Amino acid sequence: MMRGRSYRRGLTGIIGLLAILVLCAVAWTSFRSESDGRGGIAVGKEAPAIEGIDTSGAKVDLLDYRGQPVLVNFWASWCQPCVKEMPLIDRTYREASDRFRLISVNVGDTKGTVNEFLKAHDISFPVLIDATGRAAERYRVSALPATFAIDAEGRLSRAGIGELTEAEQLYKLLQIDK
Rank of each mutant, 00 (worst) to 15 (best):
residue 120 A to K: 12
residue 119 K to E: 14
residue 111 K to M: 06
residue 151 D to Y: 01
residue 6 S to F: 04
residue 136 A to N: 02
residue 25 A to S: 14
residue 78 W to E: 00
residue 68 Q to N: 10
residue 147 T to L: 07
residue 21 L to Y: 04
residue 138 R to S: 06
residue 44 G to Q: 09
residue 102 L to H: 05
residue 73 N to A: 11
residue 151 D to K: 01
residue 34 E to N: 10
residue 88 L to C: 07
residue 57 G to N: 00
residue 98 D to C: 04
residue 147 T to P: 03
residue 44 G to W: 09
residue 2 M to H: 13
residue 119 K to S: 15
residue 171 Y to G: 07
residue 115 N to V: 13
residue 126 P to H: 11
residue 121 H to V: 09
residue 115 N to A: 10
residue 101 R to G: 06
residue 60 V to A: 05
residue 152 A to Q: 05
residue 105 V to A: 00
residue 20 I to G: 09
residue 24 C to F: 12
residue 106 N to A: 00
residue 86 M to F: 05
residue 145 P to M: 05
residue 30 S to R: 15
residue 19 A to W: 01
residue 44 G to M: 07
residue 46 E to G: 06
residue 109 D to Q: 12
residue 62 L to E: 08
residue 4 G to Y: 14
residue 66 R to D: 09
residue 127 V to P: 00
residue 81 P to F: 11
residue 55 T to Y: 01
residue 13 G to R: 12
residue 139 Y to A: 12
residue 29 T to M: 13
residue 163 E to C: 02
residue 109 D to E: 15
residue 34 E to L: 13
residue 69 P to S: 05
residue 63 L to A: 15
residue 103 I to G: 09
residue 118 L to E: 05
residue 95 E to C: 04
residue 109 D to Y: 13
residue 86 M to R: 03
residue 125 F to K: 01
residue 7 Y to L: 15
residue 178 K to W: 12
residue 67 G to E: 10
residue 30 S to V: 14
residue 20 I to W: 03
residue 64 D to R: 03
residue 65 Y to H: 11
residue 14 I to G: 07
residue 47 A to I: 01
residue 2 M to T: 12
residue 97 S to V: 03
residue 139 Y to Q: 10
residue 160 G to H: 11
residue 165 T to Q: 09
residue 168 E to W: 00
residue 141 V to G: 08
residue 63 L to H: 11
residue 8 R to Q: 08
residue 41 I to F: 08
residue 8 R to P: 00
residue 141 V to T: 07
residue 81 P to Q: 04
residue 160 G to V: 08
residue 126 P to E: 11
residue 172 K to C: 03
residue 81 P to G: 05
residue 34 E to A: 11
residue 9 R to D: 03
residue 81 P to W: 08
residue 168 E to M: 04
residue 82 C to A: 11
residue 163 E to A: 04
residue 101 R to H: 13
residue 126 P to F: 12
residue 166 E to Q: 06
residue 71 L to M: 02
residue 50 I to G: 05
residue 32 R to N: 10
residue 92 T to V: 14
residue 116 E to D: 15
residue 72 V to L: 05
residue 86 M to A: 04
residue 105 V to K: 00
residue 70 V to P: 04
residue 151 D to R: 00
residue 6 S to W: 02
residue 18 L to G: 12
residue 46 E to D: 14
residue 147 T to K: 06
residue 124 S to T: 11
residue 169 Q to R: 12
residue 156 L to G: 03
residue 52 G to P: 03
residue 18 L to V: 15
residue 107 V to D: 11
residue 89 I to E: 10
residue 4 G to D: 15
residue 148 F to T: 11
residue 28 W to D: 04
residue 104 S to F: 11
residue 104 S to I: 08
residue 34 E to I: 07
residue 101 R to K: 14
residue 98 D to H: 04
residue 17 L to T: 01
residue 115 N to R: 11
residue 20 I to A: 15
residue 159 A to R: 12
residue 11 L to P: 02
residue 108 G to S: 07
residue 151 D to T: 04
residue 85 E to W: 07
residue 56 S to H: 09
residue 167 A to V: 04
residue 122 D to E: 06
residue 140 R to F: 06
residue 12 T to S: 08
residue 138 R to E: 05
residue 31 F to I: 14
residue 73 N to T: 13
residue 32 R to E: 07
residue 97 S to R: 15
residue 21 L to D: 03
residue 127 V to K: 01
residue 98 D to G: 01
residue 115 N to T: 14
residue 38 R to V: 09
residue 130 D to S: 05
residue 152 A to V: 04
residue 9 R to Q: 08
